[in-house]
């Protein structure tokens, strides 16, 4: 734990201005910054959903750029299921302090007090209480009319149809058949009372773009993304990191293998992958060799065909 952000000895010169066309990362960055500024200009009370993962880190950097030399003009909201990796919580608190952002942490305390956990409830119900419900409650409590999220359209099939401004009705629900058409870069921010909009500035980024940008911009990350020998439990196809409170099944043993996380979720439901990639360049190299989509190691998307779509209709990010 506490490994520092990887040192990066390869930096990229900023391309000369006024060249004929922006390269693809500059074009994506420009689009995201434009979206942030539009939203802050037009919404009364926006918030950023901060999940501590690599996409959130990119989102934070883009927000810093959009409002420079000012500070990020909205709070970061972390929906804490209380099952997050301890490295994530430590990183979150340090990073928010360092960049001077206002951090809101929200838990569904009622459900937790009633003993909500993925083993008792199953992953679908557990996410329903600790993520979806908690998120909707937190948005309502804060009176937020717009929430930035780090979702990308390349992550999962139902996300490929998501708008950049994703309209949610009074119950926070998404109706895929009744989305507002989105033309040019003219985003419709008009709302009636109780309605809200989820905004996805990273819509057009791919996983590779995210890593290339983190590398080029030297953005700090939770060390769990980097490979290290860690104590784990191998359960079927999944590799689960072993902590003091990790739930073990009868007959299970721990072992030490070099591994890392491809995406960060809750401890019980996020699997690691075997990997030697202990630097950003190696991660990118591995990613290109892999050809396996990143959410595979999260249990929730595989519950049933179309499960992400069901969660989204209910208000999951």
């Amino acid at each position: 734990m506490n490994a520092p952000a990887p040192s990066l000895d390869v930096t990229f010169p900023h391309p000369a201005v006024s060249q004929r066309a922006l390269n693809h990362l500059q074009a994506l960055e420009a689009e995201s910054i434009f979206i942030f500024r539009e939203a802050v200009a037009e919404f009364a009370n926006p918030v950023m959903l901060y999940s501590i993962g690599k996409d959130s880190s990119v989102l934070v950097r883009l927000a810093q750029k959009a409002f420079f030399p000012g500070k990020i003009p909205f709070p970061l909201l972390h929906v804490d299921t209380s099952y997050k990796f301890p490295e994530m919580i430590e990183f979150r608190d340090n990073y928010a302090r360092e960049i001077g952002a206002k951090l809101i942490v929200h838990k569904n305390q009622k459900a937790l007090d009633a003993g909500a956990n993925p083993f008792a409830l199953g992953t679908q119900n557990c996410c329903g209480f600790l993520k979806t419900r908690a998120l909707l409650d937190a948005l309502e409590a804060g009176g937020f009319d717009a929430a930035f999220g780090g979702a990308r359209r390349d992550e999962e099939k139902s996300r490929a149809k998501e708008r950049i401004y994703s309209f949610r009705d009074k119950a926070g629900q998404w109706d895929p058949k009744n989305q507002r058409p989105e033309l040019w870069n003219l985003y419709n921010s008009r709302l009636n009372k109780g309605e809200s909009i989820r905004i996805f500035p990273l819509s057009n980024w791919t996983e590779l773009d995210i890593w290339l940008y983190i590398y080029a911009e030297q953005i700090p990350l939770v060390p769990l993304y980097l490979a290290r020998e860690r104590e784990v439990i191998v359960r079927g196809q999944s590799i689960i990191l072993k902590y003091d409170d990790t739930h073990m099944l009868p007959g299970e043993k721990t072992q030490r293998i070099p591994c890392r996380m491809r995406s960060l979720g809750c401890q019980p439901c996020s699997g690691a992958i075997r990997s030697e990639a202990d630097t950003l360049p190696k991660i990118i190299e591995e990613l290109i060799a892999f050809r396996r989509s990143e959410r595979e190691n999260r249990v929730i998307d595989h519950d049933e065909e179309g499960s992400m779509e069901s969660k989204k209709r209910e208000g999951y990010f």
Partner: peptide, 17 residues
Amino acid sequence: MATATGTQASTKFQAFL
């Protein structure tokens, strides 16, 4: 403290980047 470095990245990979 910095144990991770980018120097191990291959030149092939640099070209790719």
